[in-house]
Each structure stands twice: as structure tokens, then as C-alpha cells.
Design a protein around this nucleic acid. Structure first.
Lengths: 343, 343
DNA sequence: GTTGGCACTCAAACGGTCGGATTGCCAAAC
DNA sequence: GTTTGGCAATCCGACCGTTTGAGTGCCAAC
């Protein structure tokens, strides 16, 4: 839309209005802007401009004789044209690095700490999603018998991440057989990505003809060993912060939202789909296709773990301090990438 | 306290009052009891008895000229003296078995499904806590190099459960050295419980004198390999159900409660400490030492996984259908124990 | 011991009023 | 043409008194 040719004044008023509204959550009147921001204009003038902004759909009145609040489109213009990322203090940087560093080794723990620090420092809901292993290059696969009829499969990928899958088999496992399978798998598959393996599995292992019986378990593209589904976990911290927000005063909305969080899958898929490319992605209110978060904004970013990548960010009401949050999420993603490549 | 010599009538009225209150959440008046439960008594008589019950502290009026509601002590008497577990329908049984059975193998997934079915079928918050490995008898320990400077330790205990720990080491790992350590650990420690190992570690391995250098990593009773801390995860499903309850109308209470859930540790420790011995344990409202759940009741039970055991159950407002919940939790614990011993 | 009757109490719902904030518009000033 | 002050109009939210209905406590009668 043609918001490029908004006048300086219109932009400035939109900006001030949003800044004030983010702090107070109350509709902002013309006089407040005139007084608080000392624009050298009378309330009446500001009123006129506000009318224009309203016609353009950037702000609206909750009801006659109330002040204005930004619409989702208004926030969008603000984010696209007016956003100045607010630098972090040294203390904030230290806290982010520190919290991530204090995690026990292991992806889960690190992601847990990451969402925790995001939640705490932003006072929003901090989230993190583990990477999909699909792009990971296999470096090693181990088969360990752990008990009667159970073997543990360890799939290690470049950059030091690994995942383990518990597999059930007919109870009589010959250790020799396992070694054989291990060897075959390692010889033929190392260096390929899991996604690639999954697609070309049959050809690559067809000539084994099931000679070690158990290898059948692996020549199945749906086998959990190669699966790219359902392994990611959503970590989130700060639900309490969201509950407090006036935006969630509506009980039903809150309930729906909490359900979404618990079910995880839909939200994970959505976030993964939105966070593409480098840098921060912001989606605002009704821009979100998921019903339950249409009153919310997302500020998300990808992080890297070697060839793999996942998503972190925050969820909060559309009325959020974008300038600050952008910086925090950006810095956290960077820190997380560092922490994961350190390993 | 001397509640044994409550008259039949008093007990019956207490019972009816609680039954009605659990359904409606409204204070119960004398006429309601007289009409709905056809006791052959006039409201006036019931009023007299209710006064007695109030003096004993079993019920109370939220305010003058309102009906009565049970106190925590009233619920306690009900649970101890009047509770008749309500048998489950075949459909309910099938759902419980089915949901648990549909889990992927692996403890986490099974416990996840268990809390899910508990949450759904009870409309309360279903919870499950993984077993502490401390009592588990070591059957095997494996050391797998997964990447530069990282080894995966697999600790398998009797009954087919295993846990994996990622360990960091100086980057140059000799595969031979790992094998040596593996052998030493296996020779000396198999057959002992992890808890026992942790306590006698130094003696049992002292004579190695650090000959394979890396073994030092294991001769540390605080090593995460033997730790009994922080491994348990709290699974919970049904937060949305609790939010809906009028008991959580108070925003602050809800916030505090959600925080407790997210932090996990305090709640895990409390639940683990309360659920002792065989069978169901019920704690009611102010009986709970944790502030955040003083308006809630717990219905919990241990389940077994071989020598190990953990806890499952539900959390809900004190106003809950105890008769039904007791049966559900009991049956679920049994089903879970079955599922875990099947493996 | 039980019951009906009755005065009393209190919460919640209802409805009307008032004050405050803010707007839209218009005519005058710049 | 833009800006401004003035003013009527609008609407929300708080406040307050009233009513309604449910339920109790107590007493006298059965």
C-alpha cells in the first residue's frame, strides 16, 4: 500500500502515539501527544492529522469520544518505516550470554535456558524450537543394545549434535548382527543429509536384500531414525507474563492460547514457516494465520547450529515494545548460534 | 480429630452438600438439599444440622444469608469417610489404555501421553513425573564418541529404561581409552543401584588411579552420570481446564500457579515427597505446603517401572469430583505400570 | 426432635445520574 | 492554505440507591 508518501508529521504522530500506547495501554488523545511530546502543535491540529491517519486505517477509536489506538496496519507501518532498534545495555548482554552459557550441555538444556532468558528479559513469552535434523549431515550412526528387545540408535550429525531413538526389535539380537548393520549404514550413508538419506534410502540399501534381518528396520523411509517429524520441541517460558497483560483479559482467548501452547505442533510449524532467511521476522496481530494468536505479535529469528537451524523469539500482545525486542531477539539468536558452534 | 462420631445424618448431609457443590460451584442452601436429595426432612431440620457442621468446621458460609460450602476439613472428612470410588466405564478404560499404548516407545513419550489422557478424561490438570533413576540397578554402561570432544554416556538400568548424558572431554579421545573405561565401569558397577554407586564410587574406582585419564570424569559423585537431580521432567496437560475454573478467577493466583508449573522443580519435589507407598494419595487445599496450590487438591499415585517408580496424578480446585478422580488416577497408574513392564 | 413461620441480612442485578475525556466541526486567526 | 481556539456532542466508567431473591436464625407450635 502507498504508505511511503506519508508526511513527516503523520509519521511522527503515529510514532508518538504508538510509543505512548505501548507504555500505557490506554487510548491516546490528541492533547496527550501535544503535551508529552512537545511537537509545537496544538491538540486541534493533531486531531486533524489523527483523522487522516484513521481514514488510512493506521489508527482507530475503540469508541466515540475515546483516544486512538494503533491498528495492526499501523504497527506494520511503524515496524517497517520507523523502527530504530534500541541498543542493549552491557548488563542485558551479559545476562543473555550468561544464562545461555550456564546451561548443561545438550541441546534441550541450552534451548530451555534460551527461552528462559528471552522470557525474563522481555517480559513476554520466550520461545525456542529445536532444529530439524533434516539438513544435518550424518557423521556417525551407532546401534547400542540396551535391554532385551531394545536398541538405542544414535544419529550424530556434523556440528556435534546427536539424537537418540529407542527402537524395538524382536527380542533376540545378535551383537554381531548389529555390528554388521552399523557398518553397512556407516559405510553407505555418512556424509549425506538425513533428508537426502530418507529419500534415497531404498536404492542405497536395496542390494543388502535383508541379509542382516534387522536392517529392514532401517530401510523404511518412515522409520523414526530418519524422520523429520515431531522431534522438535517447543520450549517456552513466561506464560505468567502474558496472562497479566490486559489483552488477555478475555478468559476464552486465554484458554485457547494456552491450548495452542500445550499442543505445540501447530505453533511449531507456523513459527518455522514464518522465520525464513537471515534476521528478524515480525508478524503482527491479524497477519498471523493462526486464530489463537491474532491478538499477538511474533518477533522471531533463526539461529544456526552448524548446518542445522532452528527458531527462537518471543510472543506477546501486539502492543509491545518492538524497538527493544528486536534487539534482544537478534542478540539472543547470535549468542545461541555462538554457543552451539562453540561445542 | 473426633469426627468418627458424626451421626449418620450429619455425614449424609455433608455428603449431599459436597456432591451438589462440586457440580454447581454455588453455595448450597438447606432447601436444595431437602428437595434434591429427598431426605424426608424439612429444610429447617437440615438447617439445624448444618449449623452443627459449621461449628465443627466442616462447612462454612461465604457470607451471611448465603448457602454453605465445604471447608478443606469438610473435604477431608468426605474423602476419608464417605468416598466411594466410582467405577470407570469400559469406554474410559479403553481410552486410557489406548492413549498410553499409542505413545512412541521411550519414557518421555509415554509419560507425555499419560498426562494427556489424565488431563482430557478428568478435565483437570493431568501431571506425570519421570522416575528417579537412583533406585535403578545398572545393567550396562556405554560410552560413544559422537563428535570432537563429546561423548554420549548411556546408562541402562534393569527394566529396560536408559538415560543418556552428553559429556564434554578434552578433545583428543582415544577410542581404546573409552573401551577401557567402559570395561572398568561395567565390571565393577553392574548390579548396583545408581544411588549406591554414587555413594561408594570413590572406593570402587580408587585403585585405577586415573590410569585411563578420562576415568576421572566418572569418579565424581557429582557427575551428571550418577546424578539423581534434575533429570525428572514434569509433564502436564490441561492448563486450559484449570484456567476456566471459577477458583482461578483471581488473576494473581493464576499467575502464581502458572509460574509454579513452569519452574517445575518445586512442584516435582513436593509431589514426589507426598506420593508415598501404594495407592492414591489425596491432599486438599490448605493441607498443601506450597502457597500457590493452597486452593487446589492433588490426587496422585505412584507407578512402577521395574525397580523404579514415579508419580502421576491430577491437580484441580479443591472442588473436584473426588470419587471419579480416584478411580481414574488409580486405573491410569496401573495401566502405566503395565505399559512400562511390558517393554 | 421436628416443623412452619417470620424477621433479618446480604449479594448481585438494575437503573439512573454525574463527571471526565475526547472528539468533530466551525469560524477566526495566522 | 494551514493552524488554532471554542463549543456542542458523545460515550465510558464510576458512583449510588433500590429492588429482588435466596437463605439464614430463631421461636413457638406440633
Amino acid at each position: 500500500m502507498a504508505f511511503e508518501n506519508l508526511s513527516q508529521r503523520e509519521l511522527k504522530i503515529l510514532q508518538n502515539l504508538i510509543m505512548h500506547y505501548v507504555q500505557t495501554a490506554d487510548p491516546v488523545g490528541s492533547r496527550v501527544i501535544a503535551n508529552k511530546f512537545r511537537m509545537g502543535l496544538s491538540p486541534a491540529t493533531i486531531r486533524n492529522t489523527m483523522q487522516d491517519l484513521e481514514e488510512m486505517g493506521l489508527i482507530r477509536q475503540p469508541h466515540t469520544s475515546a483516544g486512538r489506538i494503533p491498528t495492526d496496519i499501523g504497527y506494520r507501518v511503524f515496524v517497517d518505516m520507523l523502527l530504530r532498534p534500541e541498543p542493549l545495555s552491557e548488563a542485558e548482554k551479559a545476562k543473555i550470554k550468561g544464562t545461555i552459557g550456564s546451561a548443561k550441555k545438550g541441546l534441550d538444556s541450552i534451548l530451555g535456558q534460551t527461552s528462559k532468558v528471552l522470557g525474563e528479559i522481555t517480559s513476554q513469552l520466550g520461545i525456542s524450537v529445536g532444529p530439524r535434523f533434516d539438513e544435518g549431515i550424518l557423521t556417525k550412526i551407532d546401534l547400542i543394545p540396551v535391554a532385551e528387545g531394545k536398541i538405542l540408535v544414535i544419529v550424530a550429525v556434523k556440528s556435534g549434535l546427536a539424537r537418540t531413538i529407542l527402537l524395538e526389535v524382536e527380542s533376540n539380537i545378535e551383537i554381531e548382527e548389529l555390528r554388521q548393520i552399523e557398518q553397512i549404514l556407516n559405510e553407505r550413508l555418512i556424509g549425506l543429509t538425513l533428508g537426502h538419506i530418507r529419500k534415497t534410502l531404498k536404492e542405497r540399501l536395496s542390494d543388502t536384500n535383508g541379509s542382516p534381518r534387522l536392517i529392514k528396520l532401517f530401510i523404511d523411509s518412515k522409520s523414526p531414525v530418519w524422520s523429520d517429524q515431531g522431534e522438535e520441541k517447543l520450549h517456552f517460558v513466561g506464560t505468567d507474563k502474558l496472562i497479566t497483560q490486559p489483552e488477555f483479559a478475555d478468559r476464552d482467548k486465554l484458554t485457547e492460547f494456552v491450548k495452542l501452547l500445550e499442543e505445540q505442533k501447530a505453533l511449531i510449524d507456523y513459527i518455522e514457516a514464518k522465520a525464513v532467511g537471515e534476521g528478524i521476522v515480525i508478524t503482527i496481530g491479524s497477519e498471523n494465520e493462526i486464530n489463537q494468536i491474532q491478538g499477538c505479535s511474533l518477533v522471531i529469528s533463526r539461529y544456526n547450529a552448524g548446518k542445522l537451524s532452528g527458531t527462537i523469539g518471543i510472543i506477546g500482545p501486539t502492543r509491545m515494545p518492538y524497538s527493544k525486542l528486536v534487539s534482544i531477539v537478534e542478540y539472543t539468536a547470535k549468542s545461541l548460534t555462538d554457543a552451539l558452534s562453540d561445542l
